[in-house]
């Protein structure tokens, strides 16, 4: 049993890293908004989904114009990523302006309800557009970066099996790392990043220090949504087929990642995402073996969810979060 687990380990780690990178960046969107507004932005998973659709649509029209073959692959990827993140970033800003800003002083319950409303609206809107254009709401993008690379893990240790990797894995991982490093730099080293941290700490005092709070919040939504949308593109490249309902369960898991790392903590969200991706892939590959076939791989969602429950019971502030005391 252990032998088999070890044999598949290299493949599990590689798949887990790809999935974890996606979770990590989506988790960033949750954590940033939560840090600044103490609001769970339910629509974030839907923004990710919209990004996947916008990206795939762009790729499809690129290939229809024949640009995909005439341009270097990486350049067209870069173009699509930038365009998609601008679209979804603006979408996130718009959502904040229309649905969250008027309710900033309302009870939290009401804001959560608008957030759910927005996410339903987005799901159906995307379904509608896709179905109108394609006749079916499940969309398959052009296959890009499909070259297989074999990693001979068996040469490291004979107990491992070789793992095979799609070259899109490297694209996903590199882009994710670049995005995370840039964000970390932005938040910690620039003036706007400092304003963001100030607003997260104390909105009113920040306003007194001549920080334009509304602008900072809008910027936070823009960055979080732009990252989420770009991740959607990466997801579409890596997994090929997308539908309008992928955002919901993925958003739930990314939120789990954010809680795992300590909600409001940006580096924690990155870490939590990677950990969750690895754990989930490990569970999907090995649950049937460990439990002697009682639990199938379908239970991997249940597994991710039970991690959320565990964290909430034993360490609600997350791995890197600070314990917050509510003052009256």
């Amino acid at each position: 049993m252990i032998e088999h687990v070890l044999q598949t380990l290299p493949q599990v780690v590689i798949d887990g890293l790809a999935l974890g990178a996606v979770y990590a960046i989506v988790a960033l969107g949750y954590t940033m908004v939560y840090g600044i507004l103490e609001l769970i932005n339910f629509a974030h998973g839907e923004i990710f989904m919209t990004g996947a659709f916008v990206g795939t649509a762009l790729f499809l029209s690129f290939s229809a114009f024949g640009w995909l073959s005439s341009m270097p692959m990486l350049l067209s990827l870069l173009l699509v990523l930038v365009a998609t993140s601008i679209v979804t970033g603006l979408l996130g800003m718009g959502i904040e302006r229309v649905a969250y800003r008027p309710l900033r002083s309302a009870p939290k319950l009401i804001t959560l309800i608008t957030a759910i409303g927005i996410s339903f609206l987005l799901q159906d809107f995307v379904r509608f557009i896709t179905e109108l254009k394609k006749g079916n709401y499940i969309l398959t993008g052009p296959s890009l970066f499909t070259g297989q690379v074999s990693i001979s893990a068996s040469s490291i240790w004979s107990g491992f099996h070789d793992a095979s990797v799609k070259s899109s894995f490297f694209i996903v991982l590199v882009t994710a790392v670049v995005m995370m490093v840039t964000l970390d730099f932005f938040v910690n080293k620039t003036k706007w990043g400092m304003a963001m941290r100030a607003v997260a700490q104390d909105r009113e005092t920040a306003a007194l220090m001549s920080v334009n709070v509304n602008k900072v919040i809008a910027l936070t939504f823009f960055i979080g949504s732009a990252l989420g949308g770009a991740t959607g593109v990466l997801f579409a490249i890596q997994y090929g087929t997308i539908d309008p309902y992928i955002g919901f369960i993925l958003g739930l898991k990314a939120f789990t990642a954010a809680v795992l790392g300590g909600i409001g903590n940006i580096r924690g969200a990155m870490f939590g995402g990677i950990v969750l991706g690895l754990l989930e892939m490990f569970a999907a590959a090995n649950l049937p073996i460990i439990s002697n076939g009682i639990l199938g791989a379908e239970y991997k969602d249940v597994f991710a969810f039970s991690i959320l429950i565990m964290v909430l019971i034993f360490k609600p502030e997350g791995l890197f979060g600070k314990v917050s005391i509510e003052k009256v």
């Binding site: 608008t114 409303g117 339903f120 609206l121 159906d124 509608f128």
Partner: peptide, 14 residues
């Protein structure tokens, strides 16, 4: 359905 429910939720909450 989803569209209609989404609109109802947003409009009533706002």
């Amino acid at each position: 359905q989803r569209f209609i429910f989404g609109v109802i939720l947003i409009l009533f909450a706002l």
